[in-house]
């Protein structure tokens, strides 16, 4: 097995990653669940980890990287401590989701898909979250905030350190 060394892979992470690979080693088509679980452990997927997974699952690196870059769930760059997912689905868009998004970008100096310099927030624009009754909707980590307005945004986000 490949030795896994990376500054963001610390503590028992390496052992847990190895366990994931072992568990799925013989399952056909396991790339997506493996990437998901590995990302849950490390927070994102550094290229060294992609190498590790491809060796572990006996796949080519391009195959694994191809899958990792195809699906929006996977990230090859580090994430902030909190992830803001602002919905830009149709209902939210109609109800002012774009204005909410712009206010977040301005206030925290962060771009869509980017992370603030202090790694406090990562900002993502997402497609419909299926809570259109509450449009515009924003999800911070696991918390859903409905009927947000540009003015309420900062108040809500300040609760997340």
């Amino acid at each position: 097995m490949l030795e896994l060394q990376h500054p963001d892979i610390i503590g028992d992470m390496a052992t847990r990653l190895e366990n994931v690979i072992t568990a799925y080693h013989d399952t056909p088509g396991a790339v997506i669940p493996v990437l998901r679980e590995c990302q849950n452990i490390v927070g994102y997927l550094p290229v060294e980890l992609i190498d590790y997974i491809s060796v572990g699952l006996n796949l080519s690196k391009s195959e694994v990287l191809g899958v990792a870059t195809f699906y929006s769930l996977f990230s090859l760059t580090p994430k902030g401590r909190h992830t803001i997912r602002a919905c830009l689905g149709t209902a939210c868009y109609v109800k002012g989701g774009k204005e909410v998004m712009n206010r977040i970008k301005q206030t925290y100096k962060v771009e869509e898909g980017g992370t603030t310099e202090d790694r406090r927030f990562s900002l993502e624009a997402v497609r419909c979250l299926g809570a259109c009754g509450l449009a515009p909707v924003m999800v911070v980590d696991q918390d859903t905030h409905g009927k947000v307005s540009p003015d309420r945004i900062v108040e809500i986000l300040e609760q997340y350190e």
């Binding site: 088509g29 790339v31 997506i32 195959e63 899958v67 699906y71 929006s72």
Partner: peptide
């Protein structure tokens, strides 16, 4: 894993196959 096109039947099956 977040891909709209996976609602299309043949794409969905590819996705379960890990592609």
């Amino acid at each position: 894993a977040g891909a709209f096109v996976c609602g299309e039947e043949t794409a969905l099956m590819r996705s379960i196959e890990g592609k």
